[in-house]
Measured scan of single mutants.
Amino acid sequence: VVEKVLDRRVVKGQVEYLLKWKGFSEEHNTWEPEKNLDCPELISEFMKK
Rank of each mutant, 00 (worst) to 15 (best):
K22N: 10
V2L: 03
S44G: 14
E26N: 12
F46Q: 02
N29D: 04
V1L: 04
V2W: 07
D38P: 05
L6F: 03
R8W: 06
P33L: 14
E34S: 07
L42H: 07
N29K: 06
K48E: 14
V15G: 02
N36W: 06
V11D: 10
Y17N: 01
E32T: 13
H28D: 15
L18G: 00
I43V: 12
E27P: 05
K35L: 08
T30V: 05
V15S: 05
E32V: 12
K12I: 01
R8F: 07
I43G: 02
F46T: 03
W31D: 01
Y17V: 04
R8Q: 09
E41W: 10
V11F: 10
E27W: 09
F24R: 11
S25K: 07
Y17T: 01
N29G: 07
H28Y: 09
Q14T: 11
T30M: 03
V11N: 05
K20N: 05
S44W: 09
E41F: 12
K48S: 13
P40I: 08
P33W: 08
P40A: 13
K12M: 14
G13E: 09
K49W: 15
E32D: 03
R8P: 00
L18A: 00
N29P: 06
H28W: 03
F46K: 02
N36E: 14
L42P: 05
G13H: 14
D38I: 14
N29A: 14
Q14Y: 06
R8T: 12
G23S: 08
K22T: 10
I43W: 04
V15R: 04
E41P: 06
K49A: 06
F46W: 13
K20M: 09
E16M: 14
V2S: 04
K48G: 11
W31G: 01
L42N: 03
L37D: 02
K12T: 11
I43S: 02
L42S: 05
P33C: 13
E26D: 15
K22P: 01
K49Y: 07
E3T: 04
Y17S: 00
R9M: 00
M47S: 11
E45Y: 12
R8Y: 08
E41L: 13
K20D: 01
D7H: 04
E27K: 13
C39I: 12
M47C: 11
V2R: 02
K22L: 13
S25P: 10
K4R: 07
P40Q: 11
F24G: 11
E3L: 03
V2A: 10
L19H: 05
K35P: 08
N36L: 08
Q14G: 14
E32N: 09
E34R: 04
V5C: 02
E26L: 09
K49F: 15
L6K: 11
V15Q: 05
D7G: 09
T30P: 01
D38Q: 14
K22W: 11
S44R: 12
K48N: 15
R9G: 00
G13W: 03
F24A: 10
K12A: 08
Q14L: 08
V5E: 01
W21S: 01
D38V: 07
M47P: 03
S44K: 15
K49E: 08
V5M: 02
W31M: 01
Y17W: 07
D38H: 11
E45K: 10
P33M: 14
G23T: 07
K48M: 15
K49S: 10
D7T: 02
V15Y: 05
E26V: 12
S25E: 13
L42Q: 14
K20A: 12
V5L: 12
I43Y: 03
E34V: 08
L6T: 07
K4G: 05
D7P: 00
E16F: 10
V11P: 00
K49N: 13
D38R: 15
K48L: 09
S25N: 13
E27L: 11
N36R: 10
C39R: 08
C39Q: 07
P33F: 07
S44F: 08
P33Q: 15
D38S: 15
E26M: 09
K22F: 13
K4F: 05
H28K: 04
E32Q: 10
L18D: 00
L37H: 04
E27F: 14
E16N: 03
K48D: 11
F46P: 01
E41V: 11
V15W: 05
E3G: 03
S44C: 12
M47N: 12
E34W: 02
V2Q: 03
I43Q: 03
K12V: 07
F46N: 01
F46H: 10
K35Q: 12
N29W: 04
E16P: 00
K4E: 08
L37W: 02
E32M: 15
K48F: 02
R9K: 07
E3C: 05
N29E: 06
E34F: 04
K49M: 13
L19V: 15
E27Y: 09
S25T: 10
W21K: 05
K48T: 08
G23R: 04
F46G: 03
K49R: 12
W31V: 01
K22V: 14
T30E: 04
W31S: 01
N29Q: 08
D7V: 00
P40R: 13
K49T: 10
E3N: 03
Q14N: 07
E16H: 15
W21H: 05
N29M: 08
W21L: 06
L37I: 12
W21V: 02
L18Y: 08
L6Y: 04
L18W: 07
V15M: 08
V2H: 03
S44L: 09
K12L: 14
P33K: 07
T30N: 05
N36C: 06
L42W: 01
K22M: 15
E34P: 03
G13R: 07
E41N: 11
C39H: 07
C39L: 07
G13L: 03
C39K: 06
R9Q: 05
I43E: 02
P40F: 13
R8C: 09
T30F: 01
G23E: 10
Y17Q: 01
V2T: 07
K49I: 12
V10Y: 14
N36M: 10
K49Q: 06
K49H: 14
F24Y: 12
P33E: 10
R8V: 05
L18N: 05
F46C: 09
K4Q: 08
C39S: 09
K22H: 09
V10H: 05
E27N: 05
L42R: 11
L37N: 04
E16T: 04
E16I: 03
S25V: 04
K49L: 10
S25H: 13
C39A: 10
S44A: 14
V11M: 10
Y17C: 02
E41D: 15
H28I: 05
G13I: 00
D7F: 02
R9C: 00
Q14D: 14
K49G: 14
H28R: 11
M47F: 10
K4V: 06
L19F: 02
V1F: 07
E32C: 15
L42F: 04
K4T: 07
R9S: 01
C39T: 06
L37M: 13
D7I: 00
Q14S: 12
